[in-house]
């Protein structure tokens, strides 16, 4: 199981365009991917509704995990999206 911790820097948090880009990238992968604020419940990163529902704001630290082939590359991509202003 691989994971990345990143701080969300976008002004809108993980909402609007950042959320859509994040979910779209996660949904491309065949392997399971989760996301959540550090220390809190995680949800599927492939579900836009779940990702919006955890309401990640600017400055929140999130943890993204994935398991399986290509997990490292996928996590790099997702971490980059989450840390884009």
């Amino acid at each position: 199981m691989a994971e990345r911790k990143v701080t969300v820097v976008s002004e809108v948090g993980l909402h609007a365009r950042p959320a859509a880009n994040f979910v779209r990238a996660a949904a491309k992968a065949e392997i399971p991917v989760t996301v959540g604020r550090v220390g809190e419940d995680v949800v599927s990163a492939k579900s836009i509704l779940a990702v919006l529902g955890i309401d990640v704001r600017q400055g929140d630290e999130i943890v993204i995990t994935a398991d399986g082939e290509g997990a490292e590359d996928l996590l790099d991509e997702l971490a980059a999206i989450a840390s884009t202003p």
């Binding site: 609007a16 365009r17 959320a19 859509a20 979910v23 779209r24 949904a27 599927s44 492939k46 579900s47 836009i48 509704l49 779940a50």
Partner: peptide, 16 residues
Amino acid sequence: GDILLAQALMARDPGL
């Protein structure tokens, strides 16, 4: 357009 694309993602949401 972004809003509409996000709505498309909602309609395709695996959890839903």
